[in-house]
């Protein structure tokens, strides 16, 4: 384990038993994930739906155990923590603030809940902490007695953030934190996450399909495809000179609100294969413009290139 590694994932595999068209089958959602998240960094996990990014986040949160391999937080297996100890270290923020808040609790009760379950502080002390947390995330004081149904989407996401932060965790796992929000509200939440990260030296795992958001917030990026990390490295480097053809396609697909833009013509066409029957060899070969006979047979191992790693037999050239 590297000294600054806060989260370490080694050879993690996750299988689910599913029933597809009446037949029992094994769905391998993760296929040998190696990943390190360093203390204080924002690591983004990107990829399309079904690539396994949410499964990976559930392993990191200790909600699920890997079928093989290890996930450790501060050197200790994520599932070896008891629930309260783990919750003091790592907290999730989910995509949909409409379903992640109990509609029958007031905002004050929701934010105080982590303190209550831990039996921390008296009534008055908790009240002060809730008020502090609400101020930090920009919620007006009077909303303490409101119910989630009375709040806008942006306000609800602020409640979720306040609840996550009140126990002073070190790690936040944000799963698509803004994709359920309107555009004019998204940026406020992104600003808040950036501000809180700096103030509390948080380590953040950001799961997103929005590469513009990832570029804005993340220090490092891991690109997932069909249960594998196909490329990882510093954000600037990945965006400037991706080595994997899938990363290139994701970057080409970013639609930017600028004048005189044309719709991108992607170099990949076929669709995402079923994770039940991953293609042999490199899982990306059916969509890859550079695929040849080798790619159809041999799964490329990850190769290092300074601080970036990628899995490809025919990587894109680095700029001279």
């Amino acid at each position: 384990m590297k000294p600054d590694a806060l989260i370490t994932v080694e050879g993690a595999t996750k299988d689910y038993i599913v029933h597809a068209e009446g037949v029992r089958a094994t769905l391998r959602a993760l296929r040998g994930i190696d990943l390190t998240v360093r203390r204080g960094e924002v690591l983004a996990i990107v990829g399309e739906s079904g690539c396994g990014k949410t499964t990976l986040s559930r392993l990191i949160l200790g909600i699920e155990e890997p079928s093989a391999g290890h996930v450790s937080l501060e050197g200790k297996a994520a599932t070896d923590y008891d629930r309260l100890a783990r919750a003091a270290l790592i907290q999730p923020i989910f995509q949909d603030p409409y379903s992640s808040l109990n509609p029958r609790m007031t905002i004050g009760q929701i934010i105080a809940a982590p303190l209550v379950v831990r039996g921390r502080g008296g009534r008055r002390e908790r009240h002060t902490q809730v008020m502090d947390a609400m101020r930090q995330v920009g919620l007006a004081e009077h909303l303490r007695n409101a119910y989630p149904g009375q709040l806008s989407g942006g306000q609800r996401q602020r409640v979720a953030i306040a609840r996550a932060l009140i126990g002073e965790p070190e790690i936040l796992v944000c799963d698509e934190p803004t994709s359920a929000l309107d555009v004019s509200v998204q940026s406020q939440i992104l600003n808040l996450i950036a501000e809180l990260r700096a103030r509390f030296s948080l380590t953040i795992v950001l799961i997103s399909h929005n590469l513009a958001v990832v570029h804005h917030l993340a220090d490092r990026v891991a690109v997932m495809y069909l249960g594998q990390i196909v490329e990882s490295g510093p954000t600037e480097k990945i965006f400037a000179s991706p080595r994997h053809h899938y990363t290139r396609a994701l970057l080409d697909a970013i639609l930017v609100p600028e004048a005189h833009r044309r719709l991108p013509r992607l170099t990949i066409d076929a669709e995402f294969p079923s994770p039940l029957t991953p293609p042999p060899g490199c899982a990306f070969h059916p969509r890859c413009p550079a695929a040849d006979a080798v790619c159809r047979e041999i799964d490329p191992p990850p190769v290092g290139d300074g601080d970036t790693r990628f899995r490809c037999h025919h990587p894109l050239p680095t700029p001279a």
Partner: peptide
């Protein structure tokens, strides 16, 4: 102004 654009908005 609220939408991040890689290459145009300053990161962070």
């Amino acid at each position: 102004h609220s939408i991040p654009v890689p290459g145009r908005t300053a990161r962070g």
